[in-house]
Nucleic acid binder design. Structure first.
Lengths: 106, 106
DNA sequence: GGCATGGGTAAGCGTAGCCTTACGTAAGTG
DNA sequence: CACTTACGTAAGGCTACGCTTACCCATGCC
């Protein structure tokens, strides 16, 4: 998901179900490129397809979204816990929480 | 940060300040490779260096960590808000929150 | 001063990944 | 049945990037 085009495709999809051509219009890449990105997103379980005549409607899969969320949170809290533990180990806990600003909303 | 080795380097650093050689030991890559990863992390503001004799001690920069957190949260909530809005627009809000499981801890 | 230790940097290689063009295919339309 | 529309897929090119080897610099130690 580190690619800009891929994020753009995904954000378009976050606004609602769309066909491949609709996504390709407005993006500076060709339609097959979008198709390939959609394949990756589908293999990752982030997106599902439904056939509608000759078109394929892609939309975000909430389940995959949640899985991604869990994965990221896992990595994050893991690193963070280790870091916090190390920080508290060296410096005596004057500030128990070492400058981690924004708490996630929602 | 999508690279595995880079994450490994970062996680090692999350456990406390370390020298370059210490990180390279236990990782399946050479020391210069680690050095390059550290350079990237430093340019990203995620890590800071302090000289200690002939060695360089790297450690996580809490400020950069917070910035990364903010960036990720921004992207996340943005996509999520759009997705939720679209979902509520199509389906009448029987369930106002469309299956977004884990809330982030801490 | 001479040597060892710890690291950064340059040059080059190999691969992964994104994109394009070209082509093939299923579903509508007359 | 042609023809069009909306896709997917294959093949190839190009670039980015991670890794290694080789080299150079700084610091500590005798």
């Amino acid at each position: 998901m580190g690619d800009g085009t891929r994020r753009a495709v995904f954000e378009r999809l976050a606004q609602g179900p769309r066909a491949v051509g609709d996504i390709a219009d407005g993006l500076p890449v060709s339609r097959p490129a979008v198709s390939q990105h959609l394949r990756v997103l589908r293999d990752a379980g982030l997106v599902v397809v439904t056939k509608d005549g000759t078109r394929r409607l892609y939309e975000v899969d909430p389940g995959g979204l949640g899985a991604l969320r869990r994965y990221l949170d896992g990595f994050w809290t893991e690193s963070l816990a280790a870091f916090k533990a190390a920080a508290e180990a060296t410096a005596p806990p004057a500030t128990p929480n070492p400058t981690i600003p924004t708490e996630p909303p929602s």
